[in-house]
Simulated scan of single mutants.
Amino acid sequence: MPPQLDRFVCLGDSLTELSWDEQGLGASLAHLYQRKLDVLNRGLSGYNSDWALHVWKQWLEPTTDGGPKTQLVTLWLGANDAVLPSELQAVPLERYKANLRAIVALVHDRCPEASVVLVTPTPFHPEGWLDERVRRGLTREHDRAPERTREYAEAVRQLGNELSLPVADAYTPVDAEMRQLGPEKEGNVFTDGLHLNAAAYKHVVNAVVKAIEAHYPEKAPDALPLLFPYWRDIPTAGALGPEFSVADKAVAAAAANHTDPF
């Protein structure tokens, strides 16, 4: 088998699907794990935990002999589950927790080597989200409530304790930044009142990386080796094999002159 990277799979809703934008969770993890793990986007915009569980039973690839392993998984659901009970996406709190348990079990069944990090849903900005609903041609009516989202974030923290899994608390720092900005500017951490901008995603990235460093230190970005050697090590290690001897000499000459041949 040719050399290949193991995987870091991000499971979630639109906050994951859209996080491959600049400085989003996916983009940031892909940067941190470049040449160490392939970061895969398995976000499902608009999905709740009922629907996501059904889809990931079909979509989540099992580990195969000789194939890449899934080393890390983030599970970030709740923004849609936590809408008001009258809404189509709503999932009752206890079923939401049961679905997260089932998803974790699915991950461990398909990918036994995977280390899971639960991520709490983040708060939202009610007025900003009302404006977005109008832009989408919907009524200017609340379909979610701040206290309900807070309950679902707390449920994730509780579930982490029950399952002995690390929790990246994204709710608390985003909520703190909103409070610090005050009523007139608290919407500035969102693109539309619900989805995060780059500044808010930094809180999520920091929470996820800290959870990995604390609970899975051997899988932290700085702990994993690069796939293929660092370029300055090629000449001394003969790392690329005899067929690269000419390239090795070119790299050695460049390194001697303290220049970057690439």
Score class of each variant (00 low, 15 high):
L224C: 12
L224M: 13
A200D: 05
K202H: 13
N188H: 14
V174E: 12
P166F: 11
A211R: 09
E162N: 09
R157K: 15
D233C: 04
K210H: 08
L165A: 05
D192C: 03
E186V: 01
I212D: 10
D169R: 07
P225G: 01
P183G: 06
P225T: 07
Q180R: 15
I212C: 08
T236Q: 14
V189K: 04
A214M: 03
L159C: 04
N161W: 00
K210R: 11
L181E: 05
A223G: 08
A168V: 00
K210V: 04
P183Q: 12
V156N: 06
K202L: 08
H195F: 00
D192H: 04
Y171F: 08
P221G: 13
P235G: 15
V174G: 01
E162V: 02
T236S: 15
S164V: 01
A220R: 13
A237W: 01
R179S: 05
A223S: 15
R179F: 01
H195T: 08
V205G: 06
V174K: 13
Q180T: 00
P221L: 15
A220C: 03
T172F: 00
H195Y: 10
K202N: 06
N161L: 07
L163A: 00
L181Q: 10
V189P: 00
E186Q: 15
N197R: 06
T236L: 11
A207K: 08
P229W: 07
E186R: 15
K202R: 15
P166S: 08
T191R: 10
K219P: 01
E218C: 01
R232A: 07
A211E: 13
K219M: 08
G182Y: 05
L181G: 02
K210W: 03
P217A: 14
L227C: 09
K185L: 13
L165D: 10
N188V: 00
G182T: 00
H215L: 08
V205C: 12
A155K: 02
L226R: 11
Y171H: 13
E213T: 12
D175T: 05
G160V: 05
N188Q: 15
V208F: 02
A200S: 03
L181Y: 01
P173W: 12
G182P: 01
F228M: 10
G193F: 14
R179C: 02
V205R: 13
M178C: 07
V209H: 09
T172S: 11
M178S: 06
A176L: 04
G160A: 07
W231H: 14
D222T: 10
R179A: 07
L224P: 07
L159E: 15
N161Y: 01
L196T: 05
E184F: 06
N206F: 03
A237F: 00
A198N: 05
F190C: 11
V156P: 00
A207S: 10
H215K: 11
